[in-house]
Amino acid sequence: MLHLKDIKKSFRQPDGTPLHVLDIPEFHVAAGEQMVLVGQSGCGKTTLLHVIAGISRPDSGRVRIDDWEITLMPEAECDRFRAERIGYVFQTFNLLPGFTALENVLLSMRFARGRPDKARARNLLKRVGLGHRMTHRPTQLSVGEQQRVAVARALANKPKLLLADEPTANVDAGHQQQILDLLRETCREENVAIVLVTHSREVAGQFGRVDHLEDFNRVLQAL
């Protein structure tokens, strides 16, 4: 379902020299598969998620999701594809502060094709246990509730792939498992593949597939 081939990504440093971050010959995730990516801080995990989501363009290589090669898409088309096929959960939740919980979910639908499905947005919020908090703004929600809104938002457009960048890093221990269970259960129900980045061994230990970025990123191997 997700197939990366010969992905290279580098950034220009202040002195003009390139900083190589990714050099991945091959990476696969099957449809509905739930896997974890682990690696040291600064090893390029978030950059890899950005490349998969089409937020960053690789210097070379191809990213294919189902039959769509997003590296060949024009930017606007890639944006639309991301809105419709990829869900993204951020470490810091990244809810828009001016919008209510429901509006944050609807906003995600707004950028995909078709009219925002208010009923689905409400159902998703009910599923994550926030049926009574729909009209609350992020500042009126607890950290755990904010991340649950972020999960509902990521699933709003029925994506095929959910990218989660340390979704439990900022959540207290009591809510970590709750968020994780919610993510996995909901994705399983909707047959959504998960690529979850984490530092936590506890979190990684719950997944059947745990990939270490150092194992397939040639940049790190060369260090």
């Binding site: 930017e75 639309r80 809105a83 951020f90 906003l107 995600s108 950028f111």
Partner: peptide
């Protein structure tokens, strides 16, 4: 800029 980046990450086009 951060809010705009979130919208873009959610699929908003530059023009949007």
């Amino acid at each position: 800029r951060h809010d705009i980046a979130i919208m873009r990450a959610l699929g908003a086009r530059r023009v949007t």
